[in-house]
Design a binder for these strands. Sequence first.
DNA 1: TCTGGGGTCCTAGGACCC
DNA 2: TCTGGGGTCCTAGGACCC
Length: 429
Amino acid sequence: MSDSSQRRIALVDVNSFFASCERVFDPKLMGKPVVVLSNNDGCVVARSSEAKALGVAMGVPWFKISAWAPSVGLVARSSNYELYGDLSARVMSILQEFSAAVEVYSIDEAFLELTGTPEELLATGHRIKEAIQTRLGLPVCVGIGRSKTQAKLANAGAKKSAGMNGVCNLDMFSAEKLDFIMAALPVDNLWGIARRLSKRLAAQGIHTIKDLRDADPVRIKKKFGVVVQRSVYELRGIDCIKLEGERLVKNQVMYSRSFATPVTTRKQMEEVLAVYAQRVSKRLRKQGSVAGALTCFAGTSRFANEPFHSPYVNAVFSIPTNDPVEILKASSSVLLNRIEEGRKYVRAGILLHDVSPKESHQYLDLFTPVHERRQLGETLDKVMEKHGAFSIGLGAAGFKSAREWEMKREMLSLRATTRWDELATVYAK
DNA sequence: TCTGGGGTCCTAGGACCC
DNA sequence: TCTGGGGTCCTAGGACCC
């Protein structure tokens, strides 16, 4: 290793990930403005660069632009998380080939540790980009810096400036050039600084990323806390936010959905909770955990004329559990009483907290709850896997037809990489 | 008519203890 | 009238991320 060889952090992320995934199996979408919608085809959650250029805002409700869309050739897709999840796993496995230290940060991003001279690192960045493009058909950008915050900044640079061909290593800039770039960027462009903090920072005369980098860390900590102080150090090239191993086990597990049509009766809500309890407990079992407590909530629309109403209930389990029956009982017993008949509830959810590995709770059999011994949750999972989601259910959820309130996805693409019956078809000319 | 679904970390304040 | 000081643990809520 030469003197100029250094350890650096790279951030690799897929451009317009969901929209790019849609294009992989539907090349007609190439070059066209594409948006992907949230559950229930509610809002825009991803936009191709062409859609951004049309001025489509992130989070805009689809119903507000659906009439206008055809006139500009804008195409919408329902979100297809099965496809995105699978392609994401493939991206991450390619990244492992380039570094032993990879932190999967989100569905479309990862931090990697890389070592080399500035020129070598730049070349590695281009090889990563090339590999993911040719093997998966997904476009990525790579940002390289001395800390995660710098890598994020570099990645944003790679996206913005066409001349870099999607790869940016901050070390390639002179100090003067770096000052110039940071001074041109508002502080809320920085990872970790959003609307509220940037407003408070502005009141202290900190407007640009350069202002923040050059601010006094002690004063920053006093006024804004350690999180912002870390950003100051990270901007200066001192890495404070270490690379983490992949977090396979979550500390909180939630299942929450909006309804396709409002739920207005206790009876219906009971059915909703029965289904959600089953689904959230499945997520918990999947990661081998049990939960010590839960919050269950329902809510009316914030956009309706009627006053917003959002009852919730907290419950603690005497013995941590992943049993759907226990979860359902704790969720529905109090919440259902607080549901006011006739109100239009548009969403509900169950949030499990105090989550820990199941093995850490081995009790004498005498104290094992009866449902635990029956392995009810696992049995439900198996039956549903084999015979479909409507084959079996708990209590009010145990009937076979689709429900009115279940979410709608009317523009769903094929789950081409995970379902045999949805393979993509290729036509020869 | 129609407005997402997950997560994380940190801080402030209350309860409680000695 | 005057009414300690330090520590821990827990929870709710704020702020952020994708």
